[in-house]
Write a protein that binds this DNA or RNA. Structure first.
Length: 296
DNA sequence: GGCTTATGCGCAG
DNA sequence: TGCGCCTAAGCCA
């Protein structure tokens, strides 16, 4: 269940594996079969990420547009690859490596023109060199709405998903229900920089981990969140990771306070009522709280 | 085997 | 706002 950092990492991987090569393309599942026949044996020119969208560029101006949604994933095999599962939508293979795409809501052949249209609907991507946080700020100001809601709107910022919105708001001390109208320019800048730093780290490490590992958890920080749909702490013991400050936690990793869970834009939102302020902070807090997470 | 959940998103109402 | 879609994995009976 990828956010933008994963897509950028995949783009690099695919460029490394396939750029400049002639690639065998197939669709064992069948839903991309006609397109695969067109691409099969063609030269792969490059891969590009924009937010959560991935583009494969092929010789002749053909572009494959992939969006992984919630369930989609790429599996990579150094040769020899196993026979594809029947759910493989698209298989890319060279002599050296095979990549299987499974479960994407979007895997389509588009023109360069259509690619531009898709990208033009997206807000600036914190992971791209051509980003412009001012554009995001302008769009953010157009309508007063909860910041936590706005951060998932890909027209405002692209590539941010549930984990990064939750953790970046925590790190900047901003309550997700704060209206965008009550957000200062300085707070926005810090939020943007925090998102960028966290996601860059994700690209580097291949892991969405937002905590500063040198920061010891609060004694009452505890384990994962309980409640509906959550595994009990005991059972989850093995799988529970201490990667986040508030995301899917019962208690704040920093202060130990009980985490509040609320639905926001149809997703689970987690907030620490002590560390995050609903109202705009005073000057001291505005400057002091929520430094950009350092690289580990 | 069915139900639920997941780092998404587009659409109908 | 809720629903459907994509797939895998874990829980439950």
């Amino acid at each position: 269940m990828p956010e933008g950092d994963t897509i950028h990492r995949l783009a690099r991987e695919h460029a490394r594996d396939f750029a400049g090569r002639t690639v065998r393309v197939s669709s064992p599942q069948g839903r991309f079969a006609a397109e695969a026949r067109r691409l099969n044996g063609r030269r792969f020119m490059g891969a590009e990420a924009y937010g959560k969208h991935l583009f494969h560029h092929w010789r002749g101006g053909l572009v494959v547009h992939v969006h992984l949604g919630m369930a989609g994933w790429f599996y990579r095999y150094p040769r020899p690859a196993p026979p594809p599962r029947p759910t493989v939508r698209m298989r890319l293979a060279t002599r050296d490596v095979t990549v299987d795409l499974i479960g994407p809501p979007t895997c389509e052949l588009v023109s360069e023109e259509e690619r531009r249209e898709i990208v033009s609907r997206l807000g600036p991507d914190p992971l791209r060199r051509d980003f412009d946080p001012d554009v995001a700020w302008e769009r953010l100001r157009r309508r007063d709405r909860p910041v936590g809601d706005a951060l998932l709107d890909q027209r405002i910022v692209s590539g941010v998903g549930n984990i990064y919105r939750i953790e970046a708001l925590f790190l900047t001390g901003i309550h997700p229900l704060r209206g965008t109208a009550a957000l200062s320019r300085r707070e926005w800048t810090r939020l943007w920089q925090t998102l960028r730093a966290l996601m860059q780290r994700g690209v580097r490490t291949g892991r969405a981990r937002t905590v500063d590992p040198s920061e010891t958890p609060h004694p009452r920080a505890g384990g994962p969140a309980g409640g509906a749909g959550e595994r009990p702490a005991g059972e989850a013991g093995e799988r529970w990771s201490d990667d986040f400050y508030v995301y899917r936690r019962a208690n704040c990793r920093r202060c130990g306070r009980r985490i509040v869970e609320l639905p926001l834009s149809g997703r689970r939102m987690f907030v620490c009522p002590r560390c995050q302020r609903k109202r705009r902070a005073g000057r001291a807090l505005d400057q002091g709280a929520g430094a950009v997470a350092p690289a580990p």
